[in-house]
C-alpha cells in the first residue's frame, strides 16, 4: 500500500512528477492571489482616500520582511544546489536557514499586526485594512505551511532521504517570495 506506485516514477511529459505537480499548485495559487489582489487593486484605484490609510503602514517593517524573505529564498536555492550535489547535510542546513527566515518573517509580522491593532487599525476598521489583513494573512498562511513542510523535508534531507524534495519545497518557497514581492509595493509603498 505505502509503496510508491510505478505511475509516480514515469515521466512521459519530460519532467519529474513532483516538480510538475508543484508547478500546477503554483498555477492554482496564482489565481487565488490574483483574484484577491485584482479585487484590491480595483478598489484602491477607485478610492483615492485609501492612500491616507496606507500611509499608516510601516514601510521599514515591510522592507525588513522583504529582505528576510529574499535571503531565505537564497538559502533555499543554495540548499537545492547542495541537494543536487548529493550533500544532504548541507542541503538540510540551508533549509533550516530558510526555516529561520520564514519564522522571523512571521514573528515580525505578528509584532507589526499587534502594533497596528493596538492603534485601532483592525481588520474591520476600513476596507483598506480588511484587504491589508486578508492579503497579508493569506500570504502568512502560505509562509507557515511552507516552513512546516520545510522542517519535514530538512529532517529527511539530513539523512540523505528524498533529496529531490528539497527542490520542490524550494520552488514553492520562491513562489511565496514572489507573492510578497508584489504585496510589498501594493500594501506598503504605494501611498
Amino acid at each position: 500500500m505505502s509503496a510508491t506506485p510505478i505511475a509516480t516514477t514515469r515521466s512521459s511529459a519530460g519532467m519529474p512528477t513532483g516538480l510538475l505537480a508543484v508547478w500546477w499548485v503554483i498555477a492554482s495559487e496564482i489565481v487565488i492571489f490574483g483574484g484577491l489582489l485584482a479585487s484590491y487593486i480595483m478598489h484602491r484605484l477607485a478610492h483615492d482616500a485609501w492612500s491616507a490609510h496606507a500611509a499608516n503602514t510601516n514601510t521599514w517593517i515591510g522592507a525588513f520582511n522583504t529582505l528576510v524573505l529574499l535571503s531565505s529564498s537564497l538559502a533555499a536555492v543554495l540548499g537545492h544546489k547542495a541537494a543536487e550535489e548529493g550533500d544532504g547535510a548541507k542541503a538540510a542546513r540551508q533549509l533550516w536557514y530558510t526555516f529561520a527566515g520564514g519564522a522571523t518573517f512571521l514573528v515580525v509580522k505578528g509584532f507589526e499586526w499587534a502594533m497596528e491593532i493596538s492603534h485601532g487599525y483592525t481588520i474591520s476598521a476600513n476596507t483598506f485594512w480588511s484587504f491589508y489583513y486578508t492579503a497579508a494573512g493569506l500570504h502568512a498562511t502560505h509562509v507557515l505551511a511552507g516552513i512546516i513542510i520545510m522542517a519535514v523535508v530538512a529532517r529527511k534531507a539530513a539523512r540523505n532521504v528524498d533529496l529531490h524534495h528539497v527542490e520542490l519545497i524550494g520552488v514553492y518557497w520562491h513562489f511565496v517570495d514572489v507573492v510578497w514581492i508584489f504585496l510589498f509595493p501594493l500594501l506598503y509603498i504605494a501611498k
Binding site: 498555477a27 492554482s28 496564482i30 489565481v31 490574483g34 485584482a38
Partner: peptide, 8 residues
C-alpha cells in the same frame, strides 16, 4: 503560468 496571469 502566463495563461493564469492572462486570465487574471
Amino acid at each position: 503560468a502566463s495563461t493564469t496571469l492572462i486570465f487574471m
